[in-house]
Design a protein around this nucleic acid. Structure first.
Lengths: 217, 217
DNA sequence: TTATTTAAGGGGTTTTTCCCTGTTTATTTG
DNA sequence: CAAATAAACAGGGAAAAACCCCTTAAATAA
């Protein structure tokens, strides 16, 4: 909250044109004002470390060069956990949304923003502490809750990476190398996934991943 | 050629309604006349064995119960190789077309028949001995000739069955059982395919099969 | 402090993958 | 027609990879 009684928002987004109009839009809301703007996570870090006032909310784009939304969210939550992160992204797939929320984002918006939706999101973020659009809530419910076969589709970070690499022609040894983990750990992921997904071998894994859109061919 | 100077056609098709209008259509062509109609390969066999006059052309549907188009074509070629088979099918995938032509079909038509196309096909069958629509020719050329990576996509019967089974969660031992072949033979298919398709393991096989529409998920 | 999670190791069986050889059956071709 | 050639099928043997169960250490969360 600034001296005018408005809640402050920092915008972290690479697309300067888009970010510019976004700033004007936010400033037009009665309860909000843009505090500052950063082109990526690194710039945000610098600005905050240089003593900028802390915003109440950070509008955070996921797809940025240098320091992306995931890393940035991680840093924010570690250093300034009171700031509420509203994630912005063009991706609407379950895993991206899940990952962002796991990193600590309190809300998730797809990038084709309608002014009223952004206003609602910001207000709910202040009032309730979180905002979820119907679409995102639905996606989350669908993805985390067990499906028809009782399979829980909530993958952890490394699990998902393993799963996707296992859908390539790499051996488990090679996967262990690129993930910088022991082959034994990789084997643990494998066993756990095979049990949970009720599959018999790697072919089953590929088929599962395709059905659930976890990989594309 | 019958007494009226018309070429004779036998229709082998399960869909009696469709076959009925097909007969009328063929009889309306100046050069052709339907000799008889059979609902499946077995009926055709019986009719021919009972001494029916042999048709010049057999219009053969692939998807039939009892004795399908492939088996029927095989029998026709073994017993009456002079008869020209024109295959009819809703399937337009490369492997089905290839298989039918390998069985001896002289032409291949997709089932949404335009009267002029059928007339052309029958006439070319008599004149040239074969008929290939542009679409089928193209498909064939594309499938048999080496593609960008020099991979020859012309699979033999058993090879294709193996390939498709290998895209399931079955072990090679299980595949050998259902195909009633030695595990060593199956291993031979595997080695040959891996080399030809330039893949490293079963995951590669699944990905290849999906890209080339040899399996569906 | 007690669970839970994450990473990793021990040790074993089965499956896959590879290469090379041999037999039988078609298919060419001299 | 017989001889050469190609193909489909099958075996031996072996190394690598995949698969499976069970335990443990460290870090985290409850």
């Amino acid at each position: 909250m600034n001296k005018e009684g408005k809640h402050t928002v920092a915008v972290v987004d690479d697309h300067s044109l888009f970010a510019g109009s976004l700033e004007k839009l936010i400033n037009s809301f009665p309860n909000f004002k843009v505090l500052f703007h950063a082109k990526n996570g690194l710039e945000l870090k610098d600005l905050i470390n240089e003593g900028e006032k802390l915003p109440d909310i950070i509008l955070l784009d996921i797809n940025m060069p240098i320091m992306n939304g995931f890393e940035t969210a991680e840093w924010i939550m570690e250093n300034h956990p009171k700031i509420k992160i509203l994630a912005l992204s063009m991706e609407d797939d379950e895993q991206t949304i899940l990952k962002m929320l796991r990193k600590g984002a309190k809300g998730y918006l797809l990038k084709d923003i309608h002014p009223e939706i952004l206003n609602t999101a910001l207000n709910e973020l202040i009032e309730k502490g979180f905002y979820h659009s119907e679409k995102v809530s639905e996606t989350l419910l669908h993805s985390i809750s067990p499906n028809e076969e009782g399979i829980i589709m909530d993958f952890k970070e490394n699990e998902l990476i393993f799963l996707q690499l296992a859908c390539s022609e790499m051996t488990y040894k090679e996967i262990a190398d690129v993930m910088d983990l022991s082959p034994k750990t990789i084997d643990g992921y494998r066993q756990d996934l095979f049990k949970r997904l009720k599959i018999k071998n790697r072919v089953g894994l590929v088929i599962f991943a395709l059905k659930k859109n976890l990989i594309k061919i």
